[in-house]
Every structure is written in C-alpha cells, then in structure tokens.
C-alpha cells in the first residue's frame, strides 16, 4: 500500500467533494432545502469545463461544441454554468418543500443524466469527453499531483471561509431565523422565498468550480461519473460529519473518501474478493449513515461543547 499516494488522492478528492458537501450543508442545514440532485450541478461544472477547453470536434468526435479556450476561463465558465443551471432548476422547484423538493431535484438530476447519456452532440453520449485539458504539465520540481491536491484544498478552504463569513453575518442569522421559524422571520420582514433562492444560487457556484476541477483531475467528463450514487455519497458525508457544522461536513467527506480509497487500492488476491470488498464498502457506508442519523453523536458533542463554553 502506497500511503503517500492515498494521502494525496484523499486530499484532492476529499477537497473537491468537500466543496460539494459544504454547499449542500449550506442548502440543507441553513436553508432547509433537501437537494437530492446535487450531482447534476457538479456534472454541469465538469462538462462546462470540458466543453470550453476541448478543441473543436474532428474525426470521430460526435460533440458539436469545443472552444479550446484556456483553463482559467473554462473554470469560470464551469462555475457560471452551475449557477445558470441552479437558476433554471431553482426557479420552478424552490416553491416546493421537504420531500417534494427532494424528488424534483432528484428528477432534474436524472433527466440531466439521461440527457448526457443520449445527446451525443453535447459530450459524446456514453463515451464522454476524454483527455480534458490540464493546465500545464511542467511544474518544475513539484509533481503534478501535489499541485492538484493544493489547488483542490485551496478551493475548499476558500469556499469554507466565504461560507463561514456569510453565515456569521446578519444574512446568516436571517437564514437561521427562517429555518427555525419561517412565520416569525416573515413577520420580521425577511423574504423567505428570495433568501432561499439566493442560498440555492450561491451554493451552486463552488459546486460548479469543483466540478471543473474534478474534470481537470480525472481528465474525463463521462455520464457514468455523475450518477445518483454521487448524490448519496455527498449526503452520507454530510450526515456523517454532523449537519450543523461546516468542519463536520469537511471531516465527513475526508473520512468517507479515505475509506473508499483504502478499499480501492487494497491489494486483493482475486477479482472476486475485490468485488466483495467493494460491496462491503457500500454496506458499511450505509450502516454508518443509518447509525449516525439515528444516534446523532456529532450533534450531541457539538451541543455539549456549546454548553460547557
């Protein structure tokens, strides 16, 4: 087992998915919105990045758009695309509450996934877009993987700082007020609808950027990378880390990605045992999820710490 390699991968992927978990934390724990289609916004970012950096189609390529633009522009485009997608999907769905919102966002994600699979003109259908451009391959003495880990960690820390700043401002307190008692917040002159929509849009921006970074890291934008399972993994990470704390969201994601990476890189003797290990990983993840939801250990610890302070 190459623990250094695992560590670097965990930092990279953990940070990328950590950004998504943080955004989901903002939507769910603060905005009270159950988004069961979070993967779609991530996928939009990844595809936008791929499309903006890909060279114009040639030969067997079935995709119609490839702009061949430099990566910083594409990264901005990824964040913007996710924002636009959130505006389009949020406008009709945010009127709905609770499980209805969960189902509609889930439905939107599935429609988008099915669209990516079938519409070859966007991203080659099932094949996806391969060889997504990475910035520069020569970083001097530093290996490329460390650069990626650093970039991902930077994006996550930036997201964390911005969100924390936002939540500690009067705006954040207004959000908490809406979550805790909508009628009272309404009576105090807060527009519940508008604030919910704002949170939904704001949180989509870092998800899009993370999607772009993910496409850069894997050099691939393919429908099979963006299934409902990603949504569930993000939810599990969020719940594992305790819904109410931003650090918990990050810790939960890192823990889960570490666990997955170890299982993935473990040197198994046979294909069958690797298969079983992958299934057991699912079982353990699911069990942890159920147990954490039921006993809420992290919320209790947080409460106790608050009480003693």
């Amino acid at each position: 087992m190459n623990w250094l390699q695992i560590f670097v991968t965990v930092v990279t992927l953990g940070s990328i998915f950590g950004v998504v978990t943080l955004s989901l934390n903002l939507q769910y724990a603060r905005g009270g919105m159950i988004n069961f289609g979070i993967v779609a916004y991530f996928a939009v970012g990844a595809y936008a990045y791929a499309i903006f950096t890909q060279p114009a189609p040639q030969g067997l390529d079935q995709y119609k758009f490839g702009f061949g633009w430099p990566w910083p522009v594409a990264l901005v485009a990824a964040a913007t695309a996710a924002l636009l997608f959130a505006a389009i999907t949020g406008w009709p769905t945010l009127r709905l509450r609770g499980e209805y919102l969960a189902l509609t966002t889930f439905a939107f994600a599935e429609v988008f996934h099915s669209f990516l699979l079938n519409e070859r003109r966007i991203g080659n259908g099932t094949v996806g877009l391969a060889n997504v451009k990475r910035p520069i391959s020569d970083w001097g003495p530093i290996e490329e993987k460390y650069v990626f880990a650093g970039a991902a960690a930077l994006l996550m820390i930036a997201t964390l700082l911005v969100f924390r700043r936002l939540l500690r401002s009067p705006y954040g307190r207004a959000l908490d007020a809406i979550r805790d008692d909508e009628v009272a917040a309404l009576a105090a002159g807060k527009s519940v609808q508008r604030m919910r929509r704002q949170v939904f849009l704001i949180s989509a921006i870092p998800i899009g950027a993370a999607g772009g970074l993910y496409a850069m890291f894997t050099t691939l934008a393919q429908p099979s990378l963006f299934t409902a399972e990603v949504t569930f993994i993000i939810w599990i990470a969020l719940v594992l880390g305790g819904e109410r704390s931003v650090y918990g969201a990050v810790a939960g994601t890192f823990g889960l990605i570490f666990f997955e990476e170890v299982v993935r890189t473990w040197p198994f003797e046979t294909v069958r045992s690797a298969q079983i290990a992958a299934s057991v990983e699912h079982i353990v993840t699911g069990l942890l999820f159920i147990a954490v939801l039921r006993y809420q250990p992290f919320d209790r610890i947080a409460e106790r710490m608050k009480a003693t302070r």
Binding site: I34, G98, E99, A102, F232, W235, I236, V239, R272, Q275, I276, A278, S279, V280, E281, H282, I283, T285, G286, L287, F289, I290, L293, R294
Partner: peptide, 26 residues
C-alpha cells in the same frame, strides 16, 4: 419526520444493494 426517514431509507438501499452485490456479484 418524513425527511429524515427518506434520507435514512437511501442508507438502507445502500446496505441492501451492497448485500445483494456481495452475494451475487456481477
């Protein structure tokens, strides 16, 4: 409440799906 039950049921789906995968394979 229904929201927590809904989220929990996705965890249950993970567990059952994993057990089926482990026993049956690809």
């Amino acid at each position: 409440g229904p929201a927590v039950l809904l989220i929990t049921s996705t965890g249950v789906a993970f567990v059952i799906g994993g057990v089926i995968d482990a026993l049956i394979g690809t």
